[in-house]
């Protein structure tokens, strides 16, 4: 493996995770959101897997991609429940304002989407890369 690529991959990985989180939280009033953030984060992990092997990327992710997907889905589902209690309407979101930023159950939903996208994409990417490595 090329030394430059392998060394830089760590830097890029950290950068991409940072950008993805920025995108995730920016998505409330401006373009961005869980889906795009998730894709960027998944790209970061895919880069790490390409440079340093799938095993390293799997360890960096800590949990299994499918488990991440499941937790994300659960989080998104749970974020719809408060609206059910107040308005009898699933996915009607609650909002609060802290200073100038809006926060609400929609943020939880977006984090859920983020996890689902990271898990889903990596599930496929790791499988494909492992096939190449063999």
């Amino acid at each position: 493996m090329q030394i430059i690529f392998a060394t830089m991959s760590r830097l890029f990985f950290v950068l991409m995770i940072g950008v993805s989180l920025f995108m995730l939280f920016r998505g409330h009033n401006e373009p961005g959101g869980g889906f795009i953030g998730g894709l960027i984060a998944a790209l970061g992990f895919a880069l790490l897997a390409m440079a340093r092997g799938v095993e390293t990327a799997r360890r960096a992710l800590v949990v299994h991609p499918v488990a991440l997907m499941g937790s994300g889905l659960l989080l998104a589902f749970v974020s719809g429940l408060p609206g059910l209690l107040s308005d009898r309407s699933f996915l009607t979101h609650w909002w609060t304002e802290i200073g100038s930023t809006h926060l609400g159950t929609a943020t939880t939903f977006d984090i859920g989407v983020y996890c689902v996208v990271v898990g889903g994409v990596l599930c496929l990417v790791f499988r494909l890369y492992e096939g190449i490595e063999q």
């Binding site: 889906f35 889903g120 496929l124 499988r127 494909l128 096939g131």
Partner: peptide, 20 residues
């Protein structure tokens, strides 16, 4: 597009697996 992307990538993985 999003759904199509997911399905096509799945189908591509399937095709690769079959090829192997």
């Amino acid at each position: 597009i999003v759904i199509g992307f997911a399905l096509v990538s799945f189908a591509a993985a399937l095709m690769l697996k079959t090829y192997r």
